[in-house]
């Protein structure tokens, strides 16, 4: 199943199951969604529930919050996370805070889908990853869907949660053919061990999952070790249990993320590991992250700005040698 088809199926089934589910965003209706995620839904559910909005992100999220207050379960699509900054006030000051500042009286069952990350030469204003920003906001749930199975189940769960969910997708994943399996009692907040190993834990999420998996055979070969890989899936809440179980076994941890290194999401994960698991570690943790630059257009520079399988191998090998692994 294609990644985008998994998302489409999750939305379609949710809309079929519950009339209160609506979707809104730029080009989500008649056009079918800029990444074809909402393809076919307009014909099936009509303009009242599949809402083409103006290019006004503040209002897309603001309107969706109002719909949620009125009892709907809106799914707002922001064309890319880069545009979500225009809706930041609505997401952070309103969706995330209404429950708290009303003393628990308000409920905002809202899902905001947004693709992000470095795609292919879309340049600085269409290539960012802002999970670090949203994950820092109390009141938000942040899920990062790297694969069809998680995307399908987690999106369905998000739609029916009674809190605002930032649902992160990655632009390069939409056309990818992926394994898909239906899972009963799915827990969207659980990290997944996607490869078991003994000597090193690599934490990652979204598209970097694939870069890491591509790098792992080479790392194992060069270092003569076995590597465990964990896809975090849920960024807020963070499943520290799965992380902790793995680190207690492997004693070493590397985090691979596409976001800029300074203040990136990985900084929080490594900080927690340092606080909670310091004496479990046999080596200082390593972050492999994007460079601290706006994303450049030129392909060579673009690739130089983010981790690639080759860079992941090189940096882990260097780090291992420096730390006596």
């Amino acid at each position: 199943m294609l990644y985008r088809e998994a998302l489409n199926r999750a939305i379609d089934e949710s809309m079929a199951a519950d009339k209160s589910v609506v979707i809104l965003g730029e080009d989500v209706g008649r056009y079918g969604g800029s990444y074809r995620v909402s393809e076919g839904l307009f014909a099936k559910y009509g303009p009242k529930r599949v809402i083409d909005t103006p290019i006004a992100e503040l209002s897309i999220v603001g309107n969706a919050i109002g719909m949620a207050i009125a009892g709907l379960r809106p799914i707002a699509e922001i064309m890319t996370v880069n545009f979500s900054l225009l809706a930041m006030d609505q997401i952070v000051n309103h969706a995330a805070k209404f429950r708290y500042m009303s003393g628990g009286k308000m409920t905002i069952p809202l899902t905001i889908r947004m693709p992000g990350g470095v795609s292919r030469q879309l340049a600085a204003q269409h290539s960012e990853s802002y999970e670090t920003i949203y994950s820092a906001v109390p009141g938000l749930i942040v899920l990062a869907a790297s694969n069809a199975t998680y995307a399908y189940h987690a999106l369905k769960a998000a739609i029916f949660l009674n809190d605002p969910v930032i649902f992160l997708e990655h632009e390069l994943l939409y056309p990818m053919e992926m394994d898909f399996k239906e899972i009963e009692n799915f827990d969207p907040f659980k990290a997944q061990v996607i490869k078991e190993g003994e000597n090193l834990t690599i934490l990652t999420y979204l598209k970097m999952r694939y870069d890491v998996l591509q790098a792992v055979p080479q790392i194992e070969k060069e270092l003569g070790i076995s590597v465990e890989v964990i896809d975090l899936n849920s960024l807020r809440p963070l499943d520290m249990k799965t992380i902790s179980d793995s680190i207690k076994k492997t004693k070493r941890v590397v985090l691979v993320e596409e976001d800029h290194k300074t203040g990136g999401y990985g900084a929080e994960v490594i900080a927690r590991i340092s606080e909670q698991l310091f004496y479990e570690l046999d080596a200082p943790p390593l972050r492999i992250a994007g460079e601290d630059v706006p994303i450049p257009y030129n392909r060579k520079l673009e690739l130089a700005s983010i981790p690639t399988p080759d860079k992941i191998v090189t940096q882990i090998v260097q780090w291992s040698q420096a730390n006596g692994l």
């Binding site: 809402i51 503040l58 209002s59 999220v61 603001g62 309107n63 969706a64 919050i65 109002g66 719909m67 949620a68 207050i69 009125a70 809106p74 609505q90 309103h94």
Partner: peptide, 8 residues
């Protein structure tokens, strides 16, 4: 915008 969404 929130009021507007509610009106929708």
């Amino acid at each position: 915008p929130i009021a507007t969404g509610c009106a929708y």
